[in-house]
Simulated scan of single mutants.
Amino acid sequence: MAEEVQIAGSGEVGLVRNPLGVIGLTLITLGIYGIVWYYKINKELAAIGQAKGSTEAGTDPMKSVLAVTVGLLLIVPVFLSLFGTWKRLNAAEKLVGLEPGMAAVPGFLLSLLLGPVGTYFLQSNLNKALQAQSA
């Protein structure tokens, strides 16, 4: 079960999820959970940024989801969205006082080449950011 964490300075709640659970649920639901998860993590990143008075961590999670679903037809938006999500994660980590767990370029390449491994690191680092900002 995911642990709920109040995002300080906002009305949003973030979830500290088990990274293996994210991967497993994505596989079991044939990708449906992955799309929902992608929306939720981008929403959590945006909430962290807005709580800190920054747009670096994103503003519109729906754009990210559209890029990886509908944008799949054009191919390029998927890459831009995935790289952007890693950049937003790095920005959120800095905003809460953490050193980035994995830079955007290696994280993006890991997600691109070994999807489940990239998902694991993305969720793990987001978990650390959520916990750091709530402390």
Score class of each variant (00 low, 15 high):
residue 109 L to N: 04
residue 93 E to H: 11
residue 113 L to N: 02
residue 129 A to F: 03
residue 93 E to G: 04
residue 117 V to N: 10
residue 9 G to W: 04
residue 49 G to K: 07
residue 55 T to W: 11
residue 82 L to D: 11
residue 28 I to K: 05
residue 70 V to A: 08
residue 104 A to I: 03
residue 13 V to A: 13
residue 73 L to Y: 11
residue 110 L to I: 08
residue 129 A to M: 00
residue 113 L to S: 10
residue 29 T to R: 03
residue 1 M to G: 13
residue 19 P to F: 14
residue 77 P to Q: 09
residue 55 T to S: 14
residue 32 I to Y: 06
residue 4 E to L: 14
residue 108 F to R: 08
residue 124 S to C: 03
residue 5 V to Y: 06
residue 52 K to M: 12
residue 23 I to D: 00
residue 7 I to S: 00
residue 103 A to D: 14
residue 107 G to K: 07
residue 122 L to I: 04
residue 71 G to R: 09
residue 104 A to E: 10
residue 73 L to Q: 05
residue 86 W to V: 05
residue 133 Q to E: 13
residue 108 F to E: 01
residue 60 D to S: 10
residue 121 F to E: 00
residue 127 N to E: 01
residue 43 K to S: 14
residue 74 L to Q: 10
residue 119 T to M: 15
residue 10 S to G: 00
residue 52 K to C: 07
residue 21 G to F: 08
residue 88 R to W: 08
residue 74 L to M: 10
residue 113 L to Y: 01
residue 1 M to R: 03
residue 85 T to P: 04
residue 21 G to P: 03
residue 31 G to H: 07
residue 107 G to S: 07
residue 4 E to V: 15
residue 103 A to P: 00
residue 1 M to T: 14
residue 79 F to S: 09
residue 67 A to Y: 10
residue 119 T to S: 14
residue 16 V to E: 00
residue 2 A to K: 03
residue 39 Y to K: 05
residue 78 V to S: 05
residue 33 Y to C: 07
residue 132 A to E: 05
residue 50 Q to Y: 08
residue 51 A to C: 06
residue 80 L to M: 13
residue 49 G to T: 11
residue 113 L to V: 11
residue 7 I to T: 06
residue 22 V to Y: 03
residue 90 N to M: 02
residue 8 A to V: 15
residue 19 P to A: 13
residue 106 P to D: 13
residue 27 L to I: 15
residue 5 V to I: 15
residue 82 L to S: 15
residue 86 W to T: 05
residue 17 R to A: 10
residue 92 A to Q: 05
residue 111 S to N: 07
residue 9 G to F: 02
residue 104 A to S: 12
residue 87 K to Y: 01
residue 31 G to I: 09
residue 107 G to H: 11
residue 107 G to T: 00
